[in-house]
Simulated assay, not measured.
Amino acid sequence: MAGDGLVDEEYRVAFERVQERLHAGDSYEVNLTHRLRVESGIEPAAAYLRLRELNPAPYAGFLQHDVPGARAWLLSSSPERFATVSTSSTSGKGSTTDGQRLLETKPIKGTTPRSDDPVVDAEHRDRLASDPRYRAENLMIVDLLRHDVASVCEVGSVEVPQLMEVESYETVHQLVSTVRGRLRSEVSTVAALRALFPAGSMTGAPKLRTMEVVDEVEASPRGAYAGAFGWVSGDGRADLGVVIRSLVTAGDGRWTVGTGGGITVLSDVVEEHAEAALKARRLLEVFTPS
């Protein structure tokens, strides 16, 4: 393929193996990811403050697990909601009444870069909203999540109030949908979160078979990357983000950055590699002196 010289060999081989699985009918879409390794003496707290400055996002978070023999820090600037569980009464479409709980997830699938030129920036935004490849990727994940949400929600309550809307962040435009439903009374909050895990946007569809493909083709375990983090309250409420656009370290000066994107039969290896690099770019700038 023209331009293959721009893609590192490990990614190209993994991409080709994914394409083989897609053409064999094992999957419709595979979220192919890889890990970047960085060495830096920057302290986690300082790195997080710089990350917030470079890449502000709704699911920003600083998690410290400072236990002897298992020290770890997660620094997140994630734009993606894994799930919320709400117990409060609301009004309007998708409303709940007292005693009911609303489960909501907001998958992101589809990314284009921002531009300092307003005209070019608008073109990138419009392309994301209209390109058949991005829309197909997003729709497949929405269907997957409708199934996951329906498995723990009341019959007839699952809806998609937002389908393929563009949200703009510091460095990228993203195609975002919303899937939600009313949790069945016998389903606990933890059980609901377990039913959605891992995030469909970070696996592909169908989920279980695609996870097997991911395990076969990715060169290293994902670790915390592509998981979820947030809080769960004793009253049943919860709010968790997807672990993307995040940095992980054990406090030893070695850092891991995960990045990737959804692959379909229409995907181009050079474009997908460039998209993954774009997602990681601001995170890597944390380690560059300002």
Score class of each variant (00 low, 15 high):
Asp4Asn: 05
Val7Leu: 06
Val7Asn: 01
Glu10Met: 07
Tyr11Arg: 10
Arg12Ile: 01
Val13His: 12
Glu16Lys: 13
Arg17Gln: 15
Arg17Thr: 06
Glu20Lys: 12
Arg21His: 15
Leu22Ala: 01
Asp26Val: 14
Leu32Phe: 09
Gly41Tyr: 02
Ile42Cys: 06
Ile42Gln: 03
Pro44Cys: 04
Ala45Phe: 12
Ala46Gln: 10
Ala46Ile: 02
Ala46Arg: 09
Tyr48Gln: 05
Leu49Arg: 12
Leu51Glu: 01
Asn55Pro: 05
Pro58Asn: 12
Ala60Asp: 11
Phe62Glu: 04
His65Thr: 13
His65Met: 15
Trp73Arg: 05
Trp73Met: 07
Leu75Asn: 01
Ser76Cys: 14
Glu80Asp: 08
Ala83Asp: 02
Ser89Ile: 10
Ser95Cys: 00
Arg101Asp: 09
Leu103Ile: 00
Thr105Val: 11
Lys106Phe: 02
Lys106Val: 01
Lys109Ile: 04
Asp117Phe: 03
Asp117Ala: 08
Val119Ser: 11
Asp121Gly: 05
Glu123Trp: 06
Arg127Leu: 14
Leu128Val: 11
Leu128His: 05
Ser130Phe: 05
Ser130Met: 09
Arg135Met: 09
Leu139Asp: 11
Met140Pro: 01
Ile141Arg: 02
Ser151Gln: 10
Ser151Phe: 11
Val152Trp: 01
Glu154Asn: 07
Val158Ile: 10
Val160Arg: 01
Val160Asp: 07
Leu163Cys: 07
Leu163Asp: 10
Thr171Val: 13
Val172Trp: 02
Leu175Gln: 03
Leu175Ile: 04
Val176Cys: 09
Arg182His: 10
Glu186Ile: 05
Glu186Gln: 12
Val187Gln: 05
Thr189Gly: 06
Ala191Ser: 13
Leu193Thr: 02
Phe197Pro: 04
Pro198Asn: 08
Gly200Asp: 08
Ser201Lys: 01
Gly204His: 11
Gly204Cys: 12
Ala205Gly: 06
Met211Asn: 04
Met211Lys: 10
Glu216Arg: 13
Val217Asn: 06
Gly223Phe: 13
Ala224Leu: 15
Ala226Met: 13
Gly227Gln: 06
Ala228Leu: 06
Ala228Arg: 02
Ala228Pro: 01
Gly230Val: 08
Val232His: 02
Ser233Trp: 04
Ser233Leu: 09
Ser233Thr: 08
Gly234Trp: 04
Gly234Lys: 04
Gly236Gln: 04
Gly236Asn: 09
Arg237Gln: 13
Leu240Gly: 00
Arg245Ser: 09
Arg245Pro: 08
Thr249Asp: 04
Asp252Gly: 14
Thr259Glu: 12
Gly262Trp: 00
Leu266Trp: 13
Asp268Arg: 07
Val269Thr: 11
Val270Cys: 09
Glu271Cys: 11
Glu272Lys: 07
Ala280Thr: 07
Ala280Cys: 11
Ala280Met: 08
Arg281Met: 11
Arg281Ile: 05
Leu283Val: 14
Val286His: 06
